[in-house]
Amino acid sequence: MTAVLYLAHRLPYPPNKGDKIRSYHLLKHLASQYQVFLGTFIDDPHDWQYVEQIKPLCTELFIRPINPLLAKCKALTGLITGQPLTLPYYTDNKMKHWVKTVMANQGINNVLVFSSAMGQFVDLDSPAAVNKVVDFVDVDSDKWRQYSDKKSGLSAWVYRREAEQLQAYEKKLASSATASLFVSEEEANLFKQLAANQTEQIYAMRNGVDLNYFNPQADFNSTEHLSGSARIVFTGAMDYWANVEAVSWFAKEVLPLLTQVQPDVHFYIVGGNPTSEVQQLASPHVTVTGRVEDVRPYIAAADLVVAPLRIARGIQNKVLEAMAMAKWVVGTEQAMEGINPPDEIADTLPATPQLMAETILARLNSTERQTSHQAARQWVAQRFSWESSLQQLNQWFGSP
């Protein structure tokens, strides 16, 4: 079997957050057709328990731990070296040595880099015979630009600097790649504008959704203990700043407008590692669950799912999963980019509190909601398939 070196910045399991969902399905696809040599990091001690579940998919697995606090200190060296801070955060000599050794010993000439930060472990000037496919997923540099727009003072300067330095690195990495992949046409087109001389090497490879797993007909644990007869749910990693900003804005700006009209509304923030800012949102109308083993019972119990993101890039898996669970989604324009559902099955709105509140109230009290929800699941099933998306990889890595 053809060998592929797969480098991912986080253990591709469990598939419970945006990047891990995509990296896991990439791994599953590769493992079904190629010998996979996986080099990855673990930055959450909770994830060590999943190593044994990944091993059967790999011919060889190399894992390095990351201490987030120490890594942030390492990242600051980028201010001295002129690098984007993202690179020294992941710099690891043992990973670099393993990559060099395994490529030489196994004669590997097919490499899949997941996330631009992992590009530093592959020689950008290596021979053209090496197929270096880089899955950028999103244009991360633009995400840092969005962050800078929401900050002020020193934070704004640091984020602007990161946007500029990371964009330069992304373009350099793409110039050395056989193909650069992005999660949507919108992301691919944005990068084409940034790297105008490389447009023929830039492709969109959309995310999919596991319709068997996210199935509204499946049996779930009881959620009878959940409060409120009008349940609004948000799912996501709650240590990710874009999610933190989204739920904070919704809880402070939109929810009060809802409860004034409909006092039984209850907002569930479902996701692991909630920051102190998120925990402080807890109230008689807000539940912060923390880490849950399965988000599906909460989605199944929801009367409505919201995606109030004001900072976003790429495709939001949380939206696809809710639609696959036959739920109506009310989301911002940023959250719906790359998915672009028709108005008949979901609401795409400007991030305006009054408009979002009015729309949510109308949907909560709609008599046509169940029909529309089933239409959402059917629409997602027709357009977001992992199997069809991932077949693109074979054109660069050749026959198994």
Rank of each mutant, 00 (worst) to 15 (best):
L5C: 04
H9C: 00
R10P: 07
L11C: 07
P15H: 13
P15T: 08
D19S: 00
L26Q: 02
L38C: 10
G39F: 02
F41M: 06
F41V: 06
I42T: 08
H46A: 15
D47P: 03
W48A: 06
Q49L: 15
Q49S: 14
Y50K: 07
R64F: 13
P68Q: 13
L70I: 10
A71Q: 02
T77E: 10
T86R: 14
T91L: 12
N93M: 13
N93G: 15
K94V: 06
V99P: 03
T101V: 11
V102I: 15
M103L: 12
A104Y: 11
A104P: 11
A104H: 14
I108V: 00
N110M: 05
F121P: 00
V122M: 04
V130P: 05
D140M: 07
R145N: 00
S148Q: 04
D149M: 12
K150S: 14
K151C: 14
A156P: 14
Y159W: 04
A163L: 05
Q167F: 02
E170Q: 06
E170M: 05
L173R: 00
A177L: 13
S180A: 08
E187R: 11
E187C: 12
N189H: 15
F191M: 12
Y203L: 12
M205Q: 14
R206G: 09
G208I: 02
V209S: 11
N212A: 13
N215S: 10
A218E: 15
D219R: 15
N221F: 12
H225D: 10
V233A: 11
A242G: 11
A242D: 11
E245F: 14
E245I: 09
A246L: 01
Q262D: 07
V265T: 14
F267C: 07
F267L: 09
G271W: 06
G272K: 09
Q280E: 05
A282W: 02
P284W: 12
V288G: 03
V295C: 08
P297Y: 08
I299H: 09
A301C: 10
A302P: 04
D303G: 05
A307C: 12
L309W: 01
G314Y: 06
V319P: 02
A322Q: 08
T332C: 03
T332Y: 05
A335D: 00
A335I: 02
E337K: 11
N340G: 07
I345V: 01
L349F: 03
P350Y: 02
T352I: 11
P353D: 01
Q354Y: 08
L355K: 15
T359K: 15
I360C: 10
L361N: 11
L364S: 03
T367I: 09
A376W: 00
R377C: 00
S389E: 00
S389A: 03
F397N: 08
F397E: 09
G398K: 06
